[in-house]
Amino acid sequence: MTPTLLAALTAAREAKRPVVLATRLPGGAQKLLPAPDAPEDLAAAAVRALARDESGTVKLADGEWFLQVHNPPMRIVVVGAVHIAQALVPLAAQLGLAVIVVDPRRSFATAERFPNVTISTEWPDEAMDALAPDARTAVVTLTHDPKLDDPALDRALKSPAFYIGALGSRKTHAARLKRLRELGHDEAALARIRGPVGLPIEAVTAPEIALSILAEIVAVRRGAPLSLAAAA
């Protein structure tokens, strides 16, 4: 890889711009995509690889190319700078997720409790509007406080977030669904919320609950055959 190309690739990654590094096989000629001068079939293959979020080798008219996908990291928005969040954040970072913690209660959302994490102390609906969850974003609410969880869930349901989870017992969850229904969300929308959150591994401690939540996020992300009923 030439220094120029490495610099361009590094810059794109830092700016969180999705790019594809295309390498001609076996010769090794390389190109960073999208690029205005890219051949049409190569450009189209790069777009597909980014959408699938999958690196791989493709056969084009001029031979084989390896397409290395560099999508910005998936995000997890954690609403509630609570004890479970403290366990969840480092585990999520290990999994390669970019973490944002949202909690307007400044005594919870401190840099001391959450070192090296992006923290938003805005009200959850405003924070969510600013973060604009996309199909590469997971949203998890942990506050147990409807004043904080509900606005975040409302915004999450209006977004294409790939995972929405809400901490709380079955009883809490039923009450929550009732409130969200009153906000105008239909059953199909409400079914997107995983609650009680996490895989049923009888988690007790904060790290165990964090693990069950992240395991569920991985399962959803990888298309593992989970039934919502099994988790309920």
Partner: peptide
């Protein structure tokens, strides 16, 4: 999660 916590390219560049 295509990005791994261990960013090999970043390490290599450094």
């Amino acid at each position: 999660m295509s990005a791994e916590a261990e960013d090999v390219l970043k390490t290599a560049a450094a």
